[in-house]
């Protein structure tokens, strides 16, 4: 996202200077779909971007805390986490735990203690189970509402946030939710800004070792590279050759819709209008 588009957002009325908002963006280590290398995850990057825009609107960048719960000992993991910091963050907080550990308990303890107003996450992680359950489990643990797949936060007034939720087919839905809440950020949200190498390497990695149980259930699972899924075959259940030939060659005949031939243009238009209303596409 370009810097000027965030000011454009301010013009639209996102002015939170009198608010003392505390925002937390949860980040994970992404995985490039082709090379498999550790990288900044797409959706988590968007969550950080949205958090930064909100923090900038409050006038204090320090209002945004970026947290990673997991392992960060390897160099590749460090580099991936630093690429978030390169977006203009002073520090990244790491709740250090083993790779096989369950992140929910330490995270919910931390968030309960620090009590932020808004928690932003991605929809699915790019590694591990990628079940997308983190926002829901945190919401359950903290007792906060969960808003899935948001595209933007339009305004925050009187402790109520107005949110645009991304729907399929490019549609948007407006939701109002009282603070505090947890939201997962959809791919329809503004793209994350570029990461700069210098600030990334200067950023502070604020590590905190936290205790967590090993995810025992997952140890029983076997994980392999994804197999190609078999394509669904079109099975023709014809008993005879003639019926098979007919199924293979015949044009798909619709059941035959309603044909209006003699009616006036007004009646015809009314018929279209009624159908459009019934289908709910006329809004």
């Amino acid at each position: 996202m370009q810097p000027d588009s965030s000011t454009a957002l301010d013009d639209k009325g996102l002015d939170l200077t009198e608010l003392d908002l505390k925002i937390v963006s949860l980040i994970s280590i992404g995985k490039h779909p082709t090379s498999g290398r550790a990288r900044r995850a797409e959706q988590d990057g968007r969550a950080v971007e949205l958090g930064m825009v909100l923090a900038e609107a409050t006038g204090d960048k320090q209002n945004l805390t970026v947290i990673h719960a997991g392992d960060s000992q390897l160099e590749a993991q460090q580099a991936a986490l630093r690429s978030y910091a390169g977006m203009g963050l002073g520090a990244v907080r790491v709740l250090q735990m083993r790779d096989s550990a369950d992140a929910i308990n330490p995270l919910s303890e931390y968030l309960y203690k620090h009590a932020p107003d808004i928690i932003l996450t991605g929809v699915h992680a790019e590694s591990g189970e990628s079940s997308g359950m983190v926002p829901y489990l945190l919401g359950e643990a903290l007792g906060w509402p969960v808003v899935p797949r948001i595209a933007n936060i339009v305004s925050i007034k009187n402790g109520v946030a107005e949110i645009l939720q991304a729907l399929p087919r490019g549609q948007r839905r407006a939701l109002a939710v009282r603070l505090p809440f947890i939201a997962s950020v959809d791919n329809a949200a503004p793209a994350p800004r570029q990461s700069a190498f210098g600030p990334a390497s200067r950023a502070l990695m604020d590590q905190k070792v936290s205790q967590s149980d090993v995810d025992g259930v997952r140890n029983a699972w076997s994980e392999l590279p994804a197999r190609k899924r078999p394509k669904r075959l079109k099975v023709v259940k014809a008993k005879t050759g003639a019926a098979r030939l007919k199924a293979a060659t015949a044009k798909p005949q619709g059941a035959g819709g309603k044909v209006m031939k003699e009616q006036s243009a007004a009646e015809q238009a009314q018929a279209i209008f009624d159908l459009l209303l019934e289908e709910g596409v006329l809004r």
Binding site: K31, G36, S127, G128, S130, W221, S222, E223, L224, A226
Partner: peptide, 9 residues
């Protein structure tokens, strides 16, 4: 799992 790149049994 892992963004569609692994199969978990």
């Amino acid at each position: 799992g892992a963004g569609g790149s692994t199969d978990i049994t």
